[in-house]
Design a protein around this nucleic acid. Structure first.
Length: 192
DNA sequence: GTACAGATTGAG
DNA sequence: TCAATCTGTACT
């Protein structure tokens, strides 16, 4: 039986949550149907010390304030004027830490099963899950239209850690830190 | 008010 | 390799 993830899953330290999110399922209720994707790639952002984080130095803006919510809330924002990025807040309230969901393996609808290009990028998976600004600050623990499940797959997962994508501006240290995690051998990740 | 770059993507 | 297209931020 699938188990819905509760608050205590999200309030643990961010790097623990990030790795544990791999292999979990995002369930999105849309027009009485379920869209489901298995998380295969994530990145961790740990403000205020993380130079690549929107909350670097603890800065709060209209855009990033959802990052400061207690673990389990959605932080969603637009990049390059056209792509939504799905983040999940982690750890405690007023700790601006989050995990960026970068790629999904499509499970439902079945027509997309095996499609390696429908959700293999942060902008594309938001399109796949039909997400937009109306999900800003949504609580994954209480929401009736989006939540996460643990399907208790017995397959052991092998995790690969590499540097994060698209944040060269953060300098040699923070742009190289291995906070991008993905499931080894998954054909559904955003880059090889 | 203006200028500029960004946690991306798909077309050429 | 490049442009699309909007928001936050650092200027004037």
């Amino acid at each position: 039986m699938p188990e819905k993830l509760r608050r205590d899953f999200y309030t643990r330290p961010t790097l623990v949550v990030a790795k544990d999110l791999l292999g979990k399922y995002i369930v999105r209720k849309f027009r009485k149907r379920k869209i489901i994707g298995k998380i295969v790639e994530v990145e961790a952002y740990i403000g205020p010390k993380d130079k690549a984080s929107h909350a670097y130095l603890g800065k709060i803006t209209e855009r990033n304030r959802a990052e400061f919510l207690i673990g389990g809330h959605i932080y969603i924002y637009l990049v390059y004027g056209m792509y939504w990025q799905l983040n999940i807040s982690t750890y405690l309230e007023n700790k601006p830490e989050c995990v960026l969901i970068r790629a999904l393996e499509p499970i439902e609808p079945k027509i997309f099963q095996g499609n390696k290009k429908i959700a293999n990028g942060p902008g594309k998976l938001c399109k796949f899950l039909k997400l937009n600004k109306s999900f800003y600050g949504e609580d994954l623990v209480k929401s009736k239209r989006i939540w996460l499940e643990d399907w208790k797959d017995c397959t052991k997962k092998e995790i690969v850690a590499t540097s994060r994508i698209g944040i060269d501006y953060a300098g040699p240290y923070w742009s190289k830190i291995p906070w991008r995690f993905y499931l080894k051998n998954s054909p559904f990740i955003s880059r090889k």
